[in-house]
Design a binder for these strands. Structure first.
Lengths: 200, 200
DNA sequence: ACCTGAACACCGTTCAAGT
DNA sequence: ACCTGAACACCGTTCAAGT
């Protein structure tokens, strides 16, 4: 057995991530397993361990790609806006639409527990931080009298809030039905928060 | 083998839930398994299936008890306050302190994914709804000019927000260190939101 | 050098068989 | 009637052995 060399390391990595994303999207996180991913790309489980450290590593890399796509969409949403207030609302809308379009892939990012003792690697944390930095940048012109640390804190509070509404709604814990209601909640949070934050 | 009758059904249920809670508290959700819970109470795995439908059922019942304790704490926090604004801030503080004191048990509630196709049972959803009802009740006197549906929506937006800050911070995604920073973020969210919501 | 396949130590769940 | 223990179909992970 063995030595097929049909694909380079990098190709196998790409195929595996592609297959993993499809599996999660279509059947949810519960259906995800190393054997299924391997089977889907025509290799054995062992091969996955030549390319990834372990299953957590594979999931992390898959989640990184999802975060990259989200970040891309958020960047795109911002440049289509004429003012900062509109941009902030559009960022929230984009965030929720993205989660709603592929809830399984989304849950994979924020529902995935890093193993006890292990901590999320730096490069992944930065992909999350990048999102908050984007929110900060948009909030800056809205509260010119606030200091940089104040704006950083506000961006975290507000975006944590948008995220919370999103995650509770997607997991059926908010008692609201339909994406539009979730969008309304988030817009309400952003608008009212801004009211308080920019005044005074 | 078999027929010990040392404990009634109800006693086994109680022991199992107790053991499950301890296991999760001390070793995290990853260490949790039916065999470990059974072992901890001196019974076999099979016995658990005489008392619970399946592992999801056990987890749900454990989470229900956690939610009951949280609700109790929140009720207690409210009656110690002189006005509604203070009560709302104390509710947020209580929520976050509770999560921080036992993060694993907390994550079990909101990180637990109901199996694909299955949906969370009604009786559990109501325990979550009860929490939002409490927030609503506290917000009511703060915005007398708002309609009941408006207040219901505001409670969900605001508490979804507090939850989001809490969950992101606990899973190290907010880039903040220490409980106090999380508390600060939540208080900032509540204060600024209220500012916008109660004005006008 | 590359990949396999079988092994290991775990899972959740079921259920005939013992007392 | 109550509980067991073994079985089944799965896991993640490792690694000697084949080509």
């Amino acid at each position: 057995m063995a030595r097929r060399n049909d694909h380079s390391r990098e190709e196998i990595r790409e195929m595996a991530l592609e297959a993993a994303e499809q599996l999660v999207s279509e059947q949810g996180p519960g259906a995800f397993s190393a054997r299924k991913v391997a089977g889907a790309i025509g290799y054995t489980v062992g091969t996955l361990y030549l390319v990834f450290d372990n299953l957590d590593d594979l999931i992390l890399q898959m989640n990184a790609r999802t975060l990259d796509r989200l970040h891309g969409r958020m960047l795109q949403a911002r440049i289509q806006c004429r003012n900062s207030r509109e941009a902030l609302l559009r960022l929230g809308e984009t965030y929720i639409r993205f989660a709603d379009e592929d809830p399984h892939r989304w849950e994979m990012i924020f529902g995935h527990r890093t193993a006890e003792g292990e901590k999320t690697p730096e490069w992944f944390q930065q992909k999350v931080a990048r999102m908050f930095a984007l929110v900060e940048a948009v909030m800056q012109p809205l509260a010119k009298r606030r200091s940089a640390p104040e704006i950083a804190q506000a961006a975290r509070a507000l975006w944590g809030g948008v995220h919370g509404i999103c995650i509770l709604a997607l997991t059926d814990k908010l008692g609201v039905a339909g994406v539009q209601s979730v969008q309304d909640l988030a817009q309400s949070l952003i608008n009212n928060y801004l009211e308080g934050f920019t005044r005074q």
